[in-house]
Amino acid sequence: MSIEGLVESLVEVENRLVEVLKEVRRFKSQVLALENENRRLRAVLTAEIIEGAESSALTKLYAEGFHICPPSFARVRGSEDCLFCLSFLEKRGK
């Protein structure tokens, strides 16, 4: 391949990369928007469920490995206990 041809190909690759980067930025802003929307919906859901739910339902949800505390409601908790979920359950139980 001649030098001119090589430069042309590189310019083409560069242009494609610029397009890909634009796409990545677009995806990134969409992810951020979705994350914000998710946070807002989670807050609404948390308020609704916590208002209406029986303590036993929340205890069950917690035992199944999900957070029930407002900051992390419905997220997977793993095997370790959560300070805020336990405090929340205790308050509900009183």
Partner: peptide, 10 residues
């Protein structure tokens, strides 16, 4: 961005 939990309660 986000709400830190009510830490005093724990």
């Amino acid at each position: 961005a986000g709400q830190f939990p009510q830490y005093q309660q724990v």
